[in-house]
């Protein structure tokens, strides 16, 4: 999972300051490790250096002065590119898959989340076929079969998750938009 892309996604709805981004990250991605403030500001610094966000003003409502950040055009393009990519089908990517679904809902809409899930499912099925070819090839060793079985089992778990998540996109959108 990429913290930078999640922050870009959280900024897609409008300007936010670092504290707000940290809070939104931890709330939206409860399965992820809570973000440290230092990590938020370091990531924002890199995103600003690369031209993906810029400062949009200072906010001093009831507390210390805070700098708000806003997505630039380049940042929006980068976010859009990331949402178009799929994760390399490999075991243990569910957290990354979930992040993409949530960010697609934050930055776009349910159709975008569904389009992502559809593309990811196709990538997973392609990989599943490749692994099945490896394990059923005439020269396959038992070690090859066992290794392929492990990856197939995890990809199958991801696929089951993709199916049930797709059925829950509308509910998740309500929760994310709340």
């Amino acid at each position: 999972m990429s913290t930078a892309h999640v922050l870009l996604g959280l900024l897609a709805g409008g300007p936010r300051h670092g504290y707000d981004l940290k809070r939104a990250h931890d709330e939206r991605l409860p399965q992820a490790k809570p973000l440290a403030f230092g990590q938020v500001y370091a990531t924002l610094g890199r995103l600003e250096r690369d031209g993906f966000v810029e400062q949009s003003g200072q906010d001093q409502e009831s507390g210390p002065e805070r700098t708000s950040y806003v997505l630039t055009e380049a940042g929006r393009t980068r976010l859009d590119e990331w949402l178009t990519e799929v994760e390399p089908p490999a075991p243990h990517v569910t957290s990354a898959l979930f992040s993409r679904v949530v960010v697609a809902l934050l930055a776009a809409d349910a159709d975008r989340a569904r389009a992502y899930l559809t593309a990811q499912r196709a990538a997973h099925m392609t990989r599943l076929r490749e692994l099945t070819s490896i394990k059923t090839a005439s020269g396959a060793t038992v070690g090859d079969v066992i290794a392929a079985d492990y990856a197939i089992g995890h990809l199958d778990a991801d696929l089951r998750w993709l199916h049930t998540t797709l059925a829950r996109v509308a509910d998740l959108q309500k929760e994310v938009a709340a």
Binding site: R114, T118, R121, M125, R129, T132
Partner: peptide, 21 residues
């Protein structure tokens, strides 16, 4: 995954998304 190709059905029709949901 043993097949060369897959057709996904949903409610009696081919589902172009492949998700069947």
């Amino acid at each position: 995954a043993y097949a060369d190709r897959e057709i996904v059905l949903r409610d009696g029709a081919v589902d172009p998304t492949g998700l069947g949901v």
